[in-house]
Design a protein around this nucleic acid. Structure first.
Lengths: 204, 204
DNA sequence: TGTACATCAGTGAACGCGCGTTCACTGATGTAC
DNA sequence: TGTACATCAGTGAACGCGCGTTCACTGATGTAC
């Protein structure tokens, strides 16, 4: 809902959306401020009413992405409760679903090359996202037999790396993408084997 | 060794090396043909004696990367023989070592956004790289108890995704990079847990 | 060994282009009376 | 409800810049005789 019936109505968000589309289509390189402005039906100069510059626009897109990401992870986690395993699995599925349906956000967040510490707001949003993943991991790791215990942060790192790797290599037209298996299947089976290795899943 | 004592001697390789440095420093976006030429001490126009254009230069850099990568993987694999496990571990370590010491190549190969099918040469080099990884995987997977068996290509995909994810998230200044663990440790422990899940490593 | 010629790697000037950014402005929207 | 004024989102022209690419050229290197 536009706050007021101004000329454009909600140009700020329209610019972000245009940027996300361009990023998803052509990669982080393919995005230009001028083109985003054109796509929003506006002069390039108009962008400067809402953003400090090009980088600022990408940052805002990434920030919204992290927020959305954290919300989705938290939502999936809650839905899987009270079973730690169900919550964990739902979170994992939500990860891939996000990467797939919000390509622009995902690329802005992880492939645009901008530092997470570029601004406090961005850093905070990224931290929220990480915490959402760690929450799901912490519950599950508590079930691991003590002698196989691994710090929750390491557990999270493993799962995140596997998820990210699957997205980058197999959910795009990347070098490895010749496998006849879907990213979803790859991630699920990979995580399954990993969890068995931790003694969480029964070894059948 | 320069083929002949020409003006520059070996400009083609000098341009590729300059490009690799620029890519490593500033990401796939930061690379410009003009700057690579300048760094090689040459006019931008000179580039066209050796490459069809900018894209061609990146492609050649990526191709050399895949070749080198495949060689290193094969070498590590051979060194670990005849133990399938030792060969596998050596291959994994070589992966991270390559990503670390040849950042420019790694980025050109996996993050530059150019399609592997851009040319037959590039596709062939990429295929060789994948085969090197799959070779190490195939030997090891043969040791898995039949009821836990997984196709070698899936096994390879899991390990590759984990390795790539670790590189992208934890070996750069990326969002997740707040873990106090080194990429090497993360990958080794992750692969260890995964292998235990397959029943290859004893569950101690 | 010396000269005449062919080759071709690299030059330097020029091009058209789209970029990000600035600036004084305009004109629609919102507000006070 | 109507008028006068303030606000400020978006305009349009302009800028300087570095880009990738082209072209006719030059001059060092290699080759034939």
């Amino acid at each position: 809902m536009p706050k007021r019936g101004y000329h454009h109505g909600n140009l700020k968000q329209a610019l972000i959306d245009a940027a996300l589309e361009l990023i998803a289509e052509r990669g982080p390189t393919g995005f230009t401020l001028s083109e985003a402005a054109k796509q929003a039906g506006v002069t390039p100069a108009a962008v400067y009413r809402h953003f400090k510059g090009r980088e600022d626009l990408i940052e805002e897109a990434a920030r919204q992405g992290f927020d959305m990401f954290a919300d989705l992870m938290n939502y999936a986690y809650d839905k899987g409760q009270p079973s730690a395993m169900a919550a964990f699995e739902a979170t994992g599925r939500a990860y891939l679903a996000f990467a797939r349906s919000h390509q622009g956000h995902y690329i802005a967040m992880f492939e645009s090359g901008l530092s997470v510490n570029r601004s406090p707001e961005l850093a905070a949003a990224a931290a929220r996202a990480r915490e959402a993943l760690e929450q799901a991991a912490a519950d599950l790791i508590a079930q691991v037999p003590p002698e196989k215990q691994v710090p929750a942060s390491v557990f999270t790192a493993h799962i995140w790396a596997l998820s990210h790797g699957v997205v980058e290599l197999y959910a795009r037209n990347a070098p490895g993408a010749t496998t006849p298996f879907s990213p979803e299947d790859l991630l699920e089976s990979g995580v399954g084997i990993y969890l068995r290795g931790l003694g969480i899943l029964s070894p059948d």
